[in-house]
């Protein structure tokens, strides 16, 4: 453990990433500063309170978001308060190792939305609302909210988190995350409720990372 800590300090995240590949995810917690993340995101990275689930999230998405916290492009209040500091000394190789590790964990659905709104949410997700210029989420995020490449998995994320992100784009935060500010602008308050509710119940579909 002591040795692993020294490794991180000297910034040999690449070694950590290699170890991860060789030894598998089981030893990742010894090689990577996983605990720095799980303090807030939950010991199995299923999300906790304000902190979103990382388990099963897309590798390329996690890496890109870590970079956008470091560049202060993701600038909502909680990001400023927690994530800006958390990533300030994170080297790219360690960031990649963390992304590979968390994406390999099986995610659980938060299921904290209003179940009565799920059907409405699914209709908006699958079809959009063309007359109101609401785009169909499915086009980019996939039929099971699984995401792809650097487009995030949304299925099973918490209602609280999904709703907050959509609201924050409307409040002017994180405008670099195109085209999401445009999408958020088209949604009504009721549609945000329905979408966040629906997605919180979507079960994990394993389609690779």
């Amino acid at each position: 453990m002591q040795r692993a800590r020294r490794d991180q300090r000297t910034g040999s995240g690449l070694v950590a990433a290699l170890l991860l590949l060789i030894a598998g995810a089981a030893s990742a917690q010894d090689a990577l500063p996983v605990r720095n993340c799980t303090w807030c995101h939950g010991s199995s990275a299923q999300g906790f309170m304000f902190a979103p689930r990382l388990a099963g999230q897309r590798t390329a998405y996690i890496e890109r978001e870590l970079a956008s916290f470091a560049a202060h492009a993701r600038d909502n209040p909680l990001s400023q308060k927690y994530m800006w500091g958390a990533v300030a000394r994170l080297d790219p190789a360690t960031a990649q190792g963390l992304a590979v590790y968390f994406s390999s964990l099986a995610p659980e659905a938060a299921a904290d939305g209003q179940s009565g709104l799920a059907a409405t949410g699914k209709a908006i997700y699958d079809n959009g609302v063309a007359v109101d210029n609401v785009a169909a989420c499915i086009a980019c995020h996939g039929p099971n909210g699984e995401g792809v490449r650097d487009i995030p998995r949304l299925g099973g994320l918490s209602y609280v988190y999904l709703k907050r992100r959509l609201e924050q784009w409307n409040q002017g935060y994180h405008q670099s995350a195109k085209p999401m500010p445009l999408v958020a602008k088209s949604l009504s308050a009721n549609e945000v409720e329905a979408l966040a509710s629906y997605l919180s119940f979507v079960q994990f579909v394993d389609v690779g990372r």
């Binding site: 109101d132 210029n133 785009a135 195109k178 445009l182 602008k185 009504s188 009721n190």
Partner: peptide, 30 residues
């Protein structure tokens, strides 16, 4: 649609074409 309101991108009448163009660009690239 008029009974809902709220979404800033929903425009009938003035600005409707611009809003629809923006809608196309949401998926087809900015």
């Amino acid at each position: 649609a008029t009974t809902q309101g709220y979404g800033a991108a929903r425009r009938t009448g003035g600005g409707a074409l611009e809003a629809k163009l923006e809608y196309c660009k949401t998926c087809h690239g900015l």
